[in-house]
């Protein structure tokens, strides 16, 4: 009992400390929100005015009620991100299982090739991909955004590292019971690695959601634009309209929050280990 209260006190103290740290982390985010409620000519007041002097909804009004179809961008972003994530999780998980638990010829070499390509700057793939997509006829479609992010070395690498931590004996004993690779993959490996899947989902969702360069190069039409590209439509000629930009960015964060809050629940001690004990 006494031990319990002492523990609780320490925990409370640590919570306060971490909250103080977290304030440093959220400062730009607060600035974003604050700027989104300011008229354009008050955004850069110095020292920073955290609470707008004359709060206005004008920026949000511009985002939702102008001739720029923000909701279309929003829907496009959802579609692209969800399909990218779904595709990536499936293909990466299968490949990661093979790299981790199946001893096939060429495994190490292929894995090394996979990893090495992570080292090539994505920016320099823009033009080659652009040319290839034109040949494949998927330039200026959402497939140009979804397909490349469906087959990633990153996802495979991440999942493989987590699959590696699951002892081979578990798989071996299942094999003796007559289970094939696929059922080992589905029944044993996947349930034990939910945290890794969650991490991958969070990363890939954010990656797709915030990607600016690929839509810039691969998408030409307004109605196919995703949010980061679509925010360009709020520009005044030759100049940035910060108010509208921040309002749009704030709205664009909502799905990311949702995905994060849903999947971070998987990071709770015990889920993975519970399976292991059996």
């Amino acid at each position: 009992m006494k031990m319990g209260t002492r523990k609780a006190l320490v925990k409370a103290f640590v919570t306060v400390l971490m909250t103080m740290f977290s304030i440093v982390m959220i400062v730009p985010f607060l600035w974003m929100i604050s700027a989104s409620f300011k008229p354009e000519n008050q955004i850069f007041t110095f020292p920073i005015q955290w609470i707008p002097e004359t709060p206005t909804l004008q920026n949000y009004n511009m985002v939702f009620n102008s001739d720029v179809p923000f909701m279309t961008f929003f829907w496009n972003s959802i579609k692209v991100s969800v399909l990218s994530v779904a595709g990536e999780v499936i293909t990466s998980a299968l490949a990661a299982y093979a790299f981790s638990k199946i001893k096939f010829t060429g495994r190490n070499l292929i894995f090394l090739i996979y990893l090495s390509t992570l080292a090539f700057p994505i920016q320099m793939m823009l033009i080659p991909r652009f040319v290839i997509f034109r040949l494949l006829g998927i330039y200026n479609t959402h497939m140009a955004l979804i397909l490349p992010s469906m087959f990633t070395a990153f996802g495979t690498f991440l999942l493989k590292q987590f699959f590696d931590t699951i002892p081979d004996e578990l798989c071996e004993s299942a094999k003796i019971d007559g289970a094939g690779h696929f059922s080992i993959f589905l029944r044993i490996i996947c349930p034990l690695c939910m945290a890794a899947f969650s991490a991958l989902i969070i990363f890939q969702f954010v990656g797709s959601w915030n990607d600016y360069e690929q839509p810039l190069v691969f998408i030409r039409e307004k109605r196919l634009a995703t949010i980061p590209l679509g925010l360009d439509y709020f520009k005044t000629e030759n100049a940035t309209n910060y108010g509208a930009l921040m309002a749009g960015s704030c709205c664009s964060l909502i799905p990311i929050f949702t995905v994060f809050l849903i999947f971070q629940k998987q990071f709770v001690a015990g889920i993975a280990t519970a399976g292991m004990k059996e």
């Binding site: 579609k79 399909l83 595709g87 479609t141 959402h142 497939m143 696929f182």
Partner: peptide
């Protein structure tokens, strides 16, 4: 086991085809 695997492969292919259709459909502007 092979059945499940086939199903999963089919599912992901269908998904990508679906996306392709969606994207392709979009390019036909009226």
């Amino acid at each position: 086991m092979k059945k499940v695997m086939a199903f999963l492969l089919a599912l992901s292919t269908a998904l990508s085809l679906g996306a392709c259709g969606g994207g392709g459909g979009n390019t036909q502007s009226t």
